[in-house]
């Protein structure tokens, strides 16, 4: 693959961030989406990268107000691609990204409204033929058209990957928290609207969407033929009892017992 002009040094790495509108977790007011704002933060922290923000959706006042949250982070402008309600934005974004041709596209893992399936980055990667990485935490270096990145794993662990650019990366809660949005810059920034034809997502009409209800807790069912076992399981107190208690032991013996348990659980890195 021929390295493109922009890949030769990281100084001219162009990053597009796909941002969506979110809601405040407590008040429910429209604002930045948490994961998307983390993606913007990540892009802004990259030395010498040029960041551009892209949103596709309805150009309502509420939406624009929410997008101003990103402008308040110190971004000059956001491109807003006008789309009607229930539009499938994959095609429009594919077209836009193909023409702007960034080295790296960042997006949140899951949108805070609509279906929130987290499928868009995958669809874009497939239609553009770019690489895709999930759970991006930090970009370590970019050289020869390849980026070395850290990916988040469960339990705070990290994995180092080398990815060929151009790439699409998703960002989740493991990435650094976004900076505060300032009022002044949010007012001064511009939202540039681009009109595009929208493709209506017809499958969405067949979905029955309602407010989330609390998931039922799983009951602990004990399948046993003996009534005594069932009763014991039902009447058992959670936790407590059955533990090994070592009293009147020397510190060394105690330490050895703990060491043995740590090795059994395989948490000790020797």
């Amino acid at each position: 693959m021929k390295p493109r002009e922009s890949d030769k040094k990281s100084a001219s790495l162009s990053i597009s961030v796909l941002v969506s509108t979110g809601r405040h977790p407590i008040t429910g007011r429209p604002g930045r989406a948490d994961q998307d704002s983390r993606a913007v933060e990540l892009a802004m922290n990259l030395q010498g990268g040029s960041v551009s923000l892209l949103h596709a959706g309805q150009p309502t006042e509420e939406c624009k107000e929410a997008l101003r949250g990103y402008l308040g982070m110190g971004i000059d402008r956001i491109s807003l691609i006008e789309q009607s309600e229930h539009a499938d934005i994959t095609e429009v974004l594919t077209k836009t990204l193909k023409s702007s041709n960034p080295s790296l596209v960042l997006a949140g893992t899951q949108a805070e409204q609509g279906e929130g399936s987290g499928l868009l980055p995958f669809l874009l990667a497939e239609s553009l033929g770019w690489s895709l990485v999930s759970g991006l935490v930090s970009i370590e270096s970019v050289e020869n058209g390849q980026a070395t990145i850290l990916q988040a794993l469960p339990r705070g662990q990290r994995r180092r990957l080398k990815v060929r650019l151009p790439a699409i990366a998703t960002v989740d809660e493991s990435a650094e928290r976004a900076r505060q949005s300032a009022f002044g810059p949010a007012r001064r920034g511009t939202i540039e609207t681009i009109s595009e034809a929208s493709h209506i997502d017809e499958t969405l009409a067949s979905f029955e969407i309602k407010k989330a209800r609390v998931r039922p807790k799983r009951l602990k069912i004990v399948k046993s033929s003996s009534a005594r076992d069932r009763f014991k399981a039902a009447a058992a107190k959670s936790g407590g009892g059955g533990g090994q208690v070592l009293s009147d032991v020397s510190a060394q013996e105690g330490a050895e017992a703990i060491f043995k348990l740590l090795q059994e659980e395989n948490v000790l890195k020797l």
Binding site: G239, G243, L246, A251, Q252, G254, A255
Partner: peptide, 20 residues
């Protein structure tokens, strides 16, 4: 805590930690 624990060492915490 000792009742909850799977393994409880009754003794001086500092000593046990140091030995560990």
């Amino acid at each position: 805590m000792v009742k909850r624990a799977d393994l409880a060492i009754i003794g001086d915490a500092e000593g046990v930690l140091e030995a560990l």
